[in-house]
Design a protein around this nucleic acid. Structure first.
Lengths: 121, 121
DNA sequence: TTGACATGCAAGTATGCACTTGCCTAGTGT
DNA sequence: ACACTAGGCAAGTGCATACTTGCATGTCAA
């Protein structure tokens, strides 16, 4: 069981807010399971991204904290795998409201129980 | 005339990055066409959000710039309407790549240069 | 008109975040 | 052993942004 941090939803949105991280997801979509160095090379070559190794490493940490990237260590290599599961619930939050109760209805599916009550952030 | 800037996608992601703005979208999903004061009241009452009027107004500006909220002026009232159109293209970017090409995002995979030095699983 | 209401604008503050810099640990091959 | 490689850690810098403060604009009712 992968434990998402206390507030997983907010982490996903924050992770997607950065264009570099979105490009990383693009690259991992084309080829999942890349190492940090692989990503650095391909990002700079194919995507014209000139970020340092440390910068990309930190971005990967954010993506992993958001649950969008899973890592597996193997020797001195660390492979990064894309996980799109958190993405399936973020857009439908405002899209799929067709059969939603208007007011006063008890939580039918618990969707509205936003773990996102980090108003204080 | 709010032109969708060259990279309107980034604006959408940035707009969604803030928890307060996400709550505003939640509220507008339940009842679209609210005024600023209506939103302030309901946000503080139902969502426990203690943001000032000016803060919410600035958030609405961001949401409008992202194309997620449209406004209509009527007398001294300004109504805010939810527009979920930009949301339909953000998550599918990494979910199904067989779909139409995105804007700006170089989803065009020229070649899959096999730098497969290691096991690719 | 006057005054209350709904909203807008602009400068200032302050926290967050992306990125750098520098050094460190661990695995690999000779 | 050694050098090389892949990656990690932590403090510091600079910019972006969320929020405040204060006043201005415009609309409606009396």
């Amino acid at each position: 069981m992968h434990l998402p941090s206390v507030d997983g939803v907010a982490d996903v949105f924050k992770a997607l807010a950065d264009p570099t991280r979105r490009t990383i997801l693009d690259e991992l979509t084309e080829r999942t399971g890349q190492t940090l160095f692989e990503l650095c090379g391909r990002l700079s070559t194919k995507h014209g991204l000139a970020s340092s190794r440390q910068a990309i490493s930190q971005h990967l940490d954010v993506l992993e904290a958001a649950g969008l990237v899973e890592t597996r260590r193997e020797g001195r290599y660390k492979f990064h795998y894309l996980d799109t599961t958190p993405l399936e619930q973020i857009a439908v939050r405002w899209l799929d409201r067709t059969a939603a109760p208007q007011s006063g209805a008890s939580t039918t599916n618990g969707d509205t129980t936003n773990v996102d009550t980090t108003t204080g952030e």
